[in-house]
């Protein structure tokens, strides 16, 4: 239980290392550059005008949300696979899901604001929107399952199974909602309808958000490892104390 992380330091209880500090600085710098690119350098769109600037946050955040949930799925499978079973995988899955939920929330908020500007409505019952909203709720449920308590292996197995169910369920949900209703405009990036500078801003957004994702993931997963270690230590200490009491009682 509570297999120790390659702990950053045994004396100081911190989650940062030289690498994560460097990564954090790079993340901040790239987000700063994204803000400049998105707000100043890129032109307003002919049709969407300044509303298009929302895309530089919206598109990267949804891509990273998908990536985060893929990582959760893969890490959960790695936990369930006996040969690679390790609580580190469980913590990576949990940390990634938390960040994924954050990114989906950003996607939904920015998307509905953009929708208000472009379609005149905050929400339309389109397949992709609806699936994304259900994705959000599904992973909120996953995080709730992680919070159910029990031992760490219990938590790990239970949440890994729920993550596997989500992997199976989401394509079905998407397919059924798609057949139910579709009016989302086609993805425009693949068709090359966007000018180069705008495309670069979106690309840069993906870079910045990926750095942020990795940075958050490393820290969060280490915090989780520490939480687990604290719980284990508390349990060990309680066991030692009870044993000592029993011995005292016997003499």
């Amino acid at each position: 239980m509570g297999r120790a992380m390659p702990a950053p330091s045994t004396t100081r209880n911190v989650t940062g290392t030289r690498f994560t500090r460097g990564l954090g600085i790079a993340t901040l710098a790239s987000i700063g550059l994204l803000a400049v690119l998105g707000l100043v350098v890129t032109p307003a769109d002919a049709v969407q005008r300044n509303g298009v600037r929302i895309m530089y946050v919206h598109v990267p955040s949804v891509w990273l949300a998908y990536l985060a949930f893929v990582v959760t799925g893969v890490a959960s499978a790695a936990y369930l696979w006996p040969r690679t079973r390790s609580l580190t995988w469980d913590r990576i899955a949990g940390a990634s899901a938390e960040i994924g939920v954050l990114y989906v929330a950003i996607t939904l908020v920015t998307g509905s604001l953009w929708g208000r500007l472009s379609w005149g409505r905050y929400w339309v019952w389109d397949a992709r929107l609806t699936t994304t909203a259900l994705l959000f709720v599904t992973y909120l449920g996953y995080l709730a399952v992680r919070g159910l308590g029990g031992t760490h292996p219990q938590r790990a197995r239970r949440s890994a199974l729920v993550a596997m169910f989500a992997v199976v369920e989401i394509p079905l949900v998407h397919f059924s909602v798609q057949r139910w209703n579709t009016l989302h405009q086609e993805e425009s990036i693949a068709k090359g309808e966007i000018n180069g500078l705008m495309l670069f801003a979106i690309f840069w957004g993906v870079v910045a958000f990926t750095l942020l994702y990795v940075w958050l993931l490393l820290h969060r997963q280490r915090v989780m490892a520490m939480e687990d270690a604290v719980e284990d230590r508390g349990l060990d200490r309680a066991l030692v104390e009870r044993r000592a009491e029993a011995l005292v009682g016997r003499t």
């Binding site: 599904t138 449920g141 159910l148 729920v162 169910f165």
Partner: peptide, 19 residues
Amino acid sequence: GAKGRDTLLPLLMLPVVVP
């Protein structure tokens, strides 16, 4: 087997039964 199960079940199950 979990505490808080009564409130957790709808959150887990309702998104899944959409199809």
